[in-house]
Design a protein around this nucleic acid. Structure first.
Lengths: 227, 227
DNA sequence: ACAAAAGTGTTCCTTCTACACCCATGA
DNA sequence: TCATGGGTGTAGAAGGAACACTTTTGT
């Protein structure tokens, strides 16, 4: 059944899972347990199973690698990577996904994932196996533009957060300062971006901040443009 | 070599090739010569060859179906489509591309492509084989946002065009009127969007219009937003 | 002169930007 | 009362929307 004209190949799914942690943008990186690239850092991922849709494979891999429920966080397809020779095992095409989640502790998960760890993007860049450096760069760029045009920043936060927390997400992901005064107005003035919970968070020093949860709106019009 | 855990599959490339023709947005559609969906309209495409990169496969299919040089026009990946059952022949994952080109006559091409024809998007929508209706919808939406944020509209035009021609592209792709006065100013005032050729086009009746060619800039900042 | 399409000037309005200023709290 | 972060007011600049008006041609 396999011929040369249109040959069979294996399809993998790779995940660039981003979070904001300790005021830096971090990516979930595993250390490869097997050849090829054994011992090298890489993005989590794995092969598509027989009768599985591509997003389902991404959700499954996410659960296997992090122990988390992929239906609860943001997961979007970036694109397919298929350069011949990108995988020394043979012809493998990978569909890359961008995932975004709050800063949760990584369950010291089972099988494959014992080595999963958060690593600052700046530190991971240039060190990853396969073509994962390229995937990571495109994932970060996608996340940056998503913050401009969607309310996605809230998925970096937990169930409740202050406007300052949300602003910190923008500053860390964009790598540039954002004016706190104008940012508050913009967020609060955009219907459906955030909803007040009624609670407040009292800092060690300073005025308490109102707590919010993510609103129903997903797109941002007008957008919040980077400088 | 094929096991159930991570099975082999075939990878296809499908192309949503758009142009503006007779004041409508049209898509290149073929009539399928073979099963499955024999006789039904579909997007052009085909299987990836053994040692071929994915964009190369898209360029090759474009050449085979239209006789045109895919290196000269805009070609960008949309995403991978891999729902089980999307192709009755078995497990086939397709990487879809958006292509944009000027309104050129279709060479009555060779092998596969004798049935290639331009069809208005509104007319093609809902009639295509496989999941190509979904691909077409996403291609059109991508093209619409590309016009907002990039200078891509010029690739719908030939080597030289008037500002009116370019405005017509926006009106047809967006499906809404655009103010001619403000549009001129915006386009001419954006450095690198268009360059004057020095020639003019003299219409049957009316003031001659200056001719332009595409400029070097690709992104559009500030963008041209839809209403 | 007239039709048709190209292009300019101007006014109003929304939004962004920058920054002065006030508010609420714990130590 | 001070430090700290939360939040409001406001003036200026930039850009978009709407539209009156002028320009350039062939018939």
């Amino acid at each position: 059944m396999i011929d040369r004209e249109h040959s069979y190949l294996r399809l993998a799914v790779d995940l660039a899972i981003l979070t904001v942690r300790e005021d830096t943008l971090q990516v979930l990186v595993i250390t490869r347990a097997n050849e090829p690239f054994r011992g090298r850092p890489a993005l989590p991922g794995g092969f598509l199973r027989g009768d599985e849709d591509i997003p389902d494979a991404a959700v499954r891999e996410l659960a296997e690698e992090t122990g988390l429920d992929g239906n609860r966080l943001h997961l979007e397809q970036l694109r397919a990577y298929g350069a011949p020779g990108r995988d020394p095992r043979g012809r493998v095409v990978s569909v890359a996904f961008l995932a975004i989640m709050p800063d949760l502790p990584l369950p010291t998960a089972g099988s494959d994932a014992s080595s999963a760890a958060w690593v600052p993007v700046e530190q991971a860049r240039g060190t990853l196996a396969f073509d994962h450096d390229e995937i990571l760069d495109e994932a970060v760029e996608r996340a940056r533009t998503r913050l401009e045009f969607t309310t996605l920043a809230t998925t970096f936060c937990g169930p409740s957060f202050t406007i300052g927390d949300l602003r910190n997400v923008y500053e860390v992901v964009w790598g540039q300062a954002v004016d706190p005064r104008n940012f508050s107005r913009k967020v609060i003035g955009t219907p459906g971006f955030v909803e007040q919970t009624g609670e407040r968070r009292i800092p060690e020093i300073g005025r308490p901040a109102a707590l919010y949860r993510a609103g129903a709106e997903t797109s941002l019009n007008p957008p919040i443009m980077r400088g």
